[in-house]
Nucleic acid binder design. Structure first.
Lengths: 144, 144
DNA sequence: GTATGTGCAAAGGTTTTGCCCCAAC
DNA sequence: GTTGGGGCAAAACCTTTGCACATAC
């Protein structure tokens, strides 16, 4: 696993305090690899003996998003969070098991530039979800 | 404008009753061209003198979705609804005024097939949102 | 006439807020 | 010591549900 980002200095440098709650919530986001809900973060944090409340989880997620450290997205009526990655990426979502797989797609980004021009939109970001079934959830049952 | 779909027979043929509420809600969805919330539908329906409740709006939207007549999608923390179109399409979302513009993109669909193969996913649907600023919301202010 | 559909109000789940205490600086 | 951040409980928000009545068939 890659070294964790230094959430401490990211906060301090912008005048925010570094608390155990914020530290653990961010660590969990990184360790989980993303695609985790506020409630799951809350449970995992408590399993780690952290004294924390659900509202603190939401407040931390909010702060992290404002600082650009975390990104929220919605999958199947669930709000999920992931640490912001350098490169834009998108999601494959399995409608069977709910698994979310990231993928990168340079062609998509090129395509979006063309579309931006065509529709006279200044495109600042994109969200792509491909919905379907992963290999495991298809197993021997190939109809949709 | 294209002739409205016959929501009456769509319902009746499947054993559901045709009520004024369902009729008006569907009409509003068609007239609005999509991208409308449950609450807006409710307000518009009441402006038309229809006696209706918000729960009926939700129940109708639910039924229409189950019948494949309507599709839900989420834009900027808002749940929006649109009548199902023949061809798959995606959305440009203006972060300034909230406007949602539809676009079609054959290249996207081709690309998604390639990605499906690469990641061993059976893709049954896709959701694409390009976020940015429309011409009106940029006007004279080109920085992001 | 019967069963589905409706309005209303209450409940449900998720997210936000107020307030007072605590701890990071 | 200050003041930003936290826990807790309550509120807010959107959506769903239960129930008795209405109405499409």
């Amino acid at each position: 696993m890659r070294a964790l980002h230094d959430i401490g200095s990211a906060l301090r440098s912008r005048g925010f305090r570094v608390t155990p709650q914020r530290r653990v919530i961010y660590e969990l986001l990184e360790e989980h690899g993303g695609h985790i809900s506020a409630d799951e973060l809350y449970s995992l944090a408590r399993m780690r003996q952290l004294r924390v409340s659900l509202s603190t989880v939401y407040r931390a997620l909010d702060l992290f998003q404002k600082l650009g450290l975390v990104r929220a997205f919605r999958v199947r009526d669930q709000q999920l969070y992931e640490v912001t990655k350098e490169e834009e990426h998108h999601h494959l979502v399995c409608l069977g098991c709910g698994k979310v797989v990231e993928f990168r797609c340079e062609h998509c980004e090129e395509l979006f530039k063309v579309l931006a021009k065509r529709y006279d939109f200044q495109v600042t970001g994109s969200r792509v979800q491909l919905l379907g079934y992963c290999a495991g959830c298809r197993g021997g049952d190939e109809e949709g």
